[in-house]
Design a protein around this nucleic acid. Structure first.
Length: 568
RNA sequence: GCGCCCAUAGCUCAGCCGGAUAGAGCAACGGAUUUCUAAUCCGUCGGUCGCAGGUUCGAGUCCUGCUGGGCGCGCCA
């Protein structure tokens, strides 16, 4: 389905062509409802280029514009803006078509890509904590949206399952492990032995050396150390899976760092052979002498002791994703601190001749109420499991207050949907680069731009249809008269314009803001326009608008990885 | 020292390619409930868009410099 924006945009292009002026500007949603529904500044741009009077040029464009099927006669305003106001008939016709469209108007991309999305990436032998929320939730939402738009998406969990920390973990395992504790809380025990070993190593060089030896043995394939490592990985994966289960996260593949181990020597050899890498101070580095801000920031791909590091792994990961997985696009969703690293990795890929579209999608941090990185009272990272459990518990308490007569089992399910939805929405409704302050009260409020507010709009609609009793059959024709009806219908039509926009700059918050405005428009409609008590044709029209709103909310929240309850 | 990111209402935040009188929510205040979930809606109050220049018909948005905060910068990942 074409959107009003694209229809008007094409009309504008035709008008410019027939008026004999070059293409310029575009049709965008009006910045203010007072100006109508859509606007273009084409006349302003052309007038500037050609040194002409913008308002006169705008009039000339309008004389060639034919939008009567969709909009009232366009008007000129301000310095030379052309404003479009959709007709009620056109909006009603569009809404009627939306009812027949499973995609709710959202077009498939005409440039489908094969995209590897790397997100989440927790570390083995460490607990998942708040810091993992943003990457996980953001990456998942982008994956859902890209998939819906028709891209081929491969979701990859680049697990941190290799590295120097395993020297300490294995030393701790052999010398400090408490088997009972490992049974009860495996990750906590792994953290304990790691931390204790680290402390011992700080005080005692002999321990440090022993850890180094354990690491070397692991890397050279010692069976005992490999077995311990494998067990750590398995225990951690179990923990990750539990979190993903609660969060509703799915991965297509999980290629941890260790997966690339046997490819690392070739990476270094290849880069040396091609002259991209060179020896420097005992290590092997790639320099970027021709790029001013990277000139003094080489990328180390092999340490002077012969070991490889995460840059080596990430270069091997690029190879794998392009050559083995056949990706033409790679999105890596991690925090902003890794900006320099991925800039280097992408630059190396470019120098090696890769033409794929590499994007490092960064995000800010989650802060506590004190505006510092969110920590527990004792200064540790807040474990993700604890946080998710609290979200559900808080949601359950609210449901209990508002709707005590629901059966307990249903209450639990609703609390899960609301609690997890609130955590995800709090994150996704905000621009990804800004740090945000975590607040239970705000995210679980039913007022404002929150998941519960949106979910409640959906629930109210479901309630209408329960009361309706009979099966709803959409009318062939809608009749929009009330301002609240028109406003809601226009919002519904904008879904198709909003979803693709998210991927321009990886901003799911654009979709979240849209859904908030839709829910707002619905609630206003709900107050102003009785549905079931109305006479035909208003009743059928209002049922249809309600149905569409429910579908857009469900679909839109679904694209953010958030579910909707039937009751709450 | 160099680089990246951020700075918008009392608080939390929108504002993508430069567009019209900078918008929401919360808080505060005032209204609306014989009702399909008031879990909501309507209204009022609230601004030197960090500071100073520049580019132009037009700057929260682009450029330069500064201030403040966060992060990063060869053998951790």
């Amino acid at each position: 389905m074409e959107t009003f924006q694209s229809i008007l945009g094409e009309s504008l292009s035709r008008a410019l062509a027939t008026a004999g002026v070059p293409a310029a500007g575009e049709v965008v949603p009006a910045t203010d409802a007072r100006f109508g529904d859509y606007q273009t500044n084409a006349a302003l741009i052309l007038a500037k280029q050609r040194g002409e009077n913008p308002r006169a040029l705008a009039q000339e464009i309008i004389d060639h514009l034919d939008v009567a099927e969709y909009a009232e006669q366009p008007t000129i305003a301000g310095a030379g803006f052309i404003n479009f106001k959709l007709t009620a008939v056109a909006i009603a016709r569009y809404a009627a078509r939306l009812l027949q469209d499973d995609r709710l108007g959202v077009a498939l991309t005409n440039n489908p890509r094969r995209i590897v999305i790397d997100f989440g990436s927790p570390n083995v032998a460490k607990p998942m904590h708040v810091g993992h929320i943003r990457s996980t939730v953001l990456g998942d939402a982008l994956a859902r949206i890209a998939t819906f738009l028709g891209h081929e998406v491969i979701r990859d969990n680049h697990i941190g399952d290799w590295g120097t920390q395993f020297g300490m973990v294995i030393y701790g395992w052999k010398n400090l492990l408490d088997r009972d504790a490992l049974e009860r809380e495996p990750i906590a025990e792994l953290v304990r032995i790691y931390k204790t070993t680290n402390e011992l190593g700080t005080a005692d060089p002999a321990v440090r050396e022993a850890c180094r030896q354990e690491l070397v043995r692991l890397q050279t394939g010692d069976p005992e150390n490999l077995r311990i490592w494998n067990e750590c990985v398995a225990l951690s994966m179990k923990e990750f899976e539990a979190a993903y289960q609660v969060l509703g996260i799915h991965y297509d593949i999980q290629r941890g760092e260790s997966f690339y181990n046997d490819r690392l020597p070739d990476v270094v050899r290849r880069l040396l052979d091609s002259g991209l890498a060179e020896r420097s101070e005992g290590a092997i580095c790639v320099f970027f002498r021709d790029i001013p801000d990277l000139a003094e920031r080489p990328c180390l791909i092999q340490k002077s002791d012969g070991g490889f590091n995460y840059a080596t792994t990430d270069i091997a990961t690029v190879d794998y994703r392009i050559k083995d997985l056949g990706a033409d696009t790679v999105w890596i969703v991690t925090g902003a601190p890794q900006l320099l690293h991925f800039r280097q990795i992408f630059e190396i890929a470019r120098r090696e001749g890769y033409t794929a579209d590499f994007r490092h999608i960064t995000h800010g941090s989650i802060l506590g109420e004190d505006r510092k990185l969110m920590k527990t009272r004792s200064g540790d990272n807040v474990p993700l499991g604890d946080l998710l459990r609290e979200a559900v518990a808080r949601a359950e308490k609210i449901v209990d207050e508002k709707n005590p007569e629901l059966p307990p089992e249903e209450k639990n399910a609703i609390a899960l949907t609301i609690g997890i939805g609130a955590v995800k929405y709090a994150d996704l409704s905000q621009y990804r680069m800004t740090d945000y302050i975590f607040s239970w009260d705000r995210m679980l409020s039913f007022q404002g731009n929150t998941a519960p507010y949106l979910q409640n709009a959906y629930v109210r609609i479901r309630s209408i249809f329960r009361k309706l009793g009979a099966e709803f059959t959409a009318p062939n024709e809608l009749v929009l008269t009330e301002p609240a009806e028109l406003n809601l219908a226009k919002r519904l039509a904008q879904f198709a314009e909003t979803v693709p926009q998210v991927l321009n700059d990886f901003r799911p918050n654009l979709l979240a803001n849209y859904l908030f405005e839709l829910a707002n428009a619905f609630h206003a409609f709900y107050e102003a326009c009785p549905v079931l008590k109305a006479d035909e044709p208003a009743r059928g029209t209002r049922l249809a608008l309600s149905e569409l709103t429910a579908r857009v909310l469900q679909r839109g929240l679904g694209l953010l990885g958030i579910r909707v309850p039937e009751k709450m």
